[in-house]
Computed example of a mutant assay.
Amino acid sequence: MRGAKRRPLGDIVVDDIVEEDPVHRGLSGPMIPGRRRAVLYACAVWGYTGVVPPPERRPIAGGRDEARLWRVDTLGGLEVLRARYVEFTFPPHTHEEFMIAVTEGGAALPTYRGGAHRVGPSDVLVLNPGEVHGGGPARGYIWQYRAFYPGAGLMRRAGREIADAARDVPQFTAEVVRDPHVAALLRRAHVALEEPRSALERGARLLQALACLIARHASDRPPARRIAPEHRAVERARQYLEALPAENVTLETLAREAGLSAFHLCRVFRQRFGLSPHAYQTIARVRLAKALLTRGLAISQAAAEAGFYDQPHLTRHFKRILGVTPGRFLTR
């Protein structure tokens, strides 16, 4: 069951959306006061916090090992992995990049930092570049997880975006990050990188997830930058999205157009318009598709010209925003 509430935080309004379930209820307790400012800066930008839906917790037998590793060009590029391991176990090895893994189901017993550490649903494993690690599913369990492998440059950038100042590469020392909100953001970003989503949404979700992880759990947490209205800057970004709704604009391009850092743009854009840039872009695309349908274009053609991947992609957002499907709109 999903619940939502809106709460003011100084000059920010935060919408908390929490998946209410017996597994995660009560896990998002009060934050440590010393972390509050940076945490809310990173996590309230898009106005969404949540938890990963409760995955299977009991031991699961049978099945086979499955994994997919691919590279995306979002925010300069990184590799991502989605895996479901039943028997496979990694030998001790290292990565040149960070490893950030969020467990979706089952349990694992990876070895690193001098010992074995059990991880379960919604747990996040963060390893710095060069850290030796290995292992696999815990006995009698599968291990289903999603992983990111961002380079040091991308992690430094995410930390710099929070404070708007030069930062060293963040480091992580916690054995396991148990933070349902960060897990939810990471999972949503990973899904966006796997499914057909706009470049703007992919960049925004990935940057948000990495920034929130750094703000809450890096050993040297960056101080938060205070919001300034930036009315002219966000208006330039809005006009760009209105003028070119079908363009697959990246977050970096939109930030350059506005003259702001990418993370700060997302923050002040939502403060000004009540929507993230990619949500605003989707609405602009639906409006364009509606106009094209009114002019007599077929639904599939309107979807393509408005920037949607295909007709089902348009139909989903058209119904969500306007309350009817494109087909029903045409037969009104």
Rank of each mutant, 00 (worst) to 15 (best):
G136R: 00
L185H: 06
W143S: 02
A284C: 07
R226W: 12
R2K: 15
V324R: 07
M155L: 06
L69Q: 13
R57P: 06
R270W: 03
V86G: 09
V177L: 04
L125R: 01
P110G: 03
P170D: 03
T282K: 09
H264N: 13
G3F: 12
A101R: 05
I100S: 00
T282A: 13
P312D: 05
Y280S: 06
R58I: 13
H133W: 09
Y141F: 12
R35S: 15
D310C: 12
H264M: 12
P170S: 01
V126F: 02
Y85S: 08
L81W: 05
A289V: 04
R205C: 02
A237G: 10
Q301I: 11
F98V: 00
S261W: 09
A209N: 01
G259A: 06
Q171M: 14
T94G: 05
V234G: 03
P222S: 14
Q208T: 11
A262W: 00
A44W: 02
P129R: 02
A183N: 02
Y309Q: 15
R232Y: 11
I299P: 03
Y149P: 01
G259F: 09
A224D: 04
P33Y: 09
L127S: 00
V124W: 01
A107E: 05
F148C: 03
P55Y: 01
T325Q: 07
T250Q: 10
A67F: 05
G327N: 08
G34M: 09
Q144W: 09
P180Y: 01
G62A: 05
D168E: 15
G296L: 07
S28Q: 13
D15A: 14
P223T: 01
R197N: 04
I321E: 01
C212H: 03
L109D: 06
P54S: 14
Y112G: 04
H117G: 04
G120H: 03
E19T: 15
I12K: 07
L314F: 05
N248Y: 13
V268E: 02
R267Q: 11
Y309N: 12
P223S: 04
L288M: 10
R236A: 08
P180A: 03
T173N: 12
A306T: 03
T325I: 09
T89W: 12
G114N: 08
Y309P: 13
R36Q: 14
Y145V: 06
T111N: 13
M1H: 13
T331S: 15
A189F: 02
A4K: 12
P170G: 00
I214F: 00
R160C: 10
T89P: 08
P53L: 07
P22Q: 10
T173S: 13
H24P: 04
A44I: 04
A255N: 09
R270I: 02
H95Y: 06
V169A: 05
R118W: 03
P59N: 07
S300C: 10
H264L: 14
T325S: 14
L297E: 15
I162W: 00
R167I: 10
F88P: 02
A107C: 12
V23A: 14
Y85M: 09
A184T: 08
L322Y: 11
T325C: 12
A38Q: 01
A279H: 06
A189E: 04
G3C: 11
R156D: 10
A38L: 07
R64Y: 07
A152W: 01
K319E: 05
W143Y: 06
L75W: 04
H181P: 15
